[in-house]
Simulated scan of single mutants.
Amino acid sequence: MALQNPPAIVFSDFDGTITLQDSNDYLTDNLGMGQKQREFIGNEILEGRTNFRDGFREEIESVKTPFNQCVETLLANIKLDPGFKEFFTYCQEQGIPIIVVSSGMKPIISALITKLIGPEAVEKIDILSNDVRLGGDDGANWELLYKDPESPFGHDKAKSIKEYLEKHGYADLDQDSEGLVSPKLFYAGDGVSDLSAAKETDLLFAKHGKDLIKYCVRENIPYTEFNDFADILNKLKKIMGGEPIKDFVENP
């Protein structure tokens, strides 16, 4: 869903950001290698000893359950951030597109959006993500398909953001572009899969207590902290009301 000259665009991670739990972590912890080994791999990624693409593939390949059963398990257990529905409604009313930029898998994200937010939301939220190749009955044989297999991230979120802006004509807008003004760009995320997108927008919302904040502090990347989408909505309303973005940056 692209709108003509929107006042802002919100790019957001999905798992652990729009949802309370990370669906990929849930599958790995409960149907795959287990939490301890997954957390070991996550730390290896954060410390730069392996890349996200290879570590995430190892986690997902440890899950041997048929894909349809994986989706059913997630639909029964994954919960929505309590502030997201109000945030979604506000963005719809203000003409602000929400773009999911995820290292998860599109069929899972679509199924969760349909259940947790509503069938109409799938038509209104663009999903830029990895995908799945299915084989056998009920997806008995399935594999992760990376959007950018050549990238160490598997899905290069920075690239996806840039391509989205270029595709919809937002990349080159300025104050003199026939009265059009570049929309304010926001990104919300929580973890290591968001590292490539951390520098691509005007303001980064980084989730309290999660790995993305550790990275931002280490790399001196400006961010503002949030606990849930009620926090993001509160700050977004103030910015759209005219308060300068720089007033919200916690490590300028």
Rank of each mutant, 00 (worst) to 15 (best):
G83F: 13
E44I: 06
L80H: 00
D190N: 09
M33N: 06
R218G: 02
T73I: 12
E61C: 09
A198G: 06
E200D: 03
R57C: 09
P7D: 07
G241I: 05
S177D: 07
G32V: 00
G104C: 11
V101A: 01
F52E: 01
V249N: 14
S182V: 03
S196L: 03
P252R: 13
D25V: 03
P7I: 11
K207E: 12
N68A: 11
P222G: 04
N227D: 15
I98W: 09
D156G: 04
I125E: 08
G16C: 10
P82W: 13
D25H: 05
A121T: 03
I245G: 02
L27I: 09
P82D: 10
G55H: 08
N68K: 08
E123T: 06
K238Q: 06
K167C: 14
T89I: 13
P252Y: 13
K235G: 05
K237G: 01
L195M: 15
D126P: 07
D190R: 03
E61M: 12
A188L: 13
D15A: 00
L180S: 11
K207R: 15
L233H: 03
I245Q: 00
C70D: 08
E219P: 02
S177T: 07
S23Y: 12
G209R: 10
Y90A: 07
E166N: 11
Q35P: 01
T73V: 09
R53C: 00
E200R: 05
E166R: 08
A76T: 07
N77P: 04
